[in-house]
């Protein structure tokens, strides 16, 4: 723990006792991204303490570490394979974009990460999903889902006040009902991080469904953040929004990646290029290419990627 704090104080300079680091230089960016290898036992506090955050977005390197990993993950709907043998790493400090043509299994892959795919009776999964060195199957599913948040295509606030929406995930956790006073700081913090606080601070008791679409989507981000997830899954979060709201949400996502590992499914390649650090290209259930954004967009290794990405930018 001391080591980690020292890290934070020293900023970018790695100390002598720091565990060995792999250095990856991404062609597209001027900043090297360092990947920390953590091989110790799972520590419940581990994910909560940002033990190295970058100060400024583009000035300092970002501490990147693995949060989730899939191993030979396959999902089939009643015999029809939607995702086949995907190995994927989800790192904190990064935005991972899943791209690919419609029906290639992006949503299915995303929904398997918080085991939401289990709600579909026909879905069968093989392979492993690891969250902080623990198989997600060993988690209590409600516990897992509060650690791996999700945002949907359509903004879907609940029909209650703005405050109650954000506090929704916090309530009924323990035996005692937390009071509004206790919840307030968490709610305010979540709204601030979602970039919505300034707009709603004076009307927290107003119905959430009266907000605009973009505000609703940011409220949904705040609602997810309130339960302090380690991973945030976003399934085409901007496809129902106007360009201005989309821009605000993109900014929010880029800011959030320092605290939460972000996986975003998007059909908008420009959007992926704007916000993603790492890109996974899927095609017919296969993970065709997985690499730093600059490489996937700039110098794709696979012909299919080239074709898809080229079409998007050409």
């Amino acid at each position: 723990m001391e080591l980690k704090e020292e890290q934070t104080q020293n900023g970018s300079a790695p100390g002598a006792e720091v565990p060995p680091l792999r250095q990856i230089v991404v062609e597209s960016e001027t900043v090297p991204i360092r990947v920390g290898d953590y091989a110790g036992p799972p520590d419940p506090e581990y994910g909560r303490e940002p033990w190295q955050l970058n100060a400024g977005l583009d000035s300092d390197p970002i501490w990147v570490e693995e949060r989730m990993r899939t191993e030979a993950l396959s999902i089939a709907y009643g015999g029809k394979v939607a995702v086949s043998a995907v190995d994927l790493e989800v790192n904190s400090g990064e935005v991972l974009a899943l791209i690919g043509p419609s029906g290639c299994g992006k949503t299915t892959l995303l929904r398997s990460l918080n085991r939401l795919v289990e709600l579909t009776p026909a879905a069968r999964r093989t392979g492993r999903i690891i969250l902080d060195n623990q198989d997600v199957d060993t988690f209590d599913v409600t516990r897992l889902r509060s650690r791996v948040g999700m945002l949907f295509q359509q903004p879907n606030p609940f029909p209650m006040s703005i405050f109650d929406n954000v506090a929704y995930g916090l309530r009924e956790r323990g035996s005692k009902k937390p009071r509004r006073k206790q919840l307030e700081p968490i709610v305010v913090d979540a709204l601030e991080r979602a970039g919505l606080w300034d707009e709603v601070s004076s009307n927290l008791n107003h119905p959430a469904l009266a907000l605009s679409g973009g505000q609703q989507q940011r409220l949904c981000i705040a609602r997810s953040l309130a339960v302090s997830p380690e991973v945030l899954l976003l399934d085409e979060p901007c496809s129902a929004l106007d360009p201005i709201s989309t821009g605000i949400i993109e900014e929010t996502i880029v800011e959030l990646r320092n605290e939460v590992a972000i996986v975003i499914v998007t059909h908008n390649l420009q959007q992926a290029a704007r916000i993603a650090d790492r890109v996974a290209f899927m095609y017919l259930g296969d993970m065709v290419e997985y690499g730093p954004a600059g490489q996937v967009f700039g110098a794709p290794r696979e012909a299919r990627t080239q074709e898809y990405v080229g079409g998007g930018f050409g």
Partner: peptide
């Protein structure tokens, strides 16, 4: 909509709540 239910599940809530 189904995604409203799923949003609640995705926040770690069970079916009853």
């Amino acid at each position: 909509p189904r995604h409203v239910r799923e949003a609640s599940y995705a926040l770690g809530k069970d079916k009853a709540s």
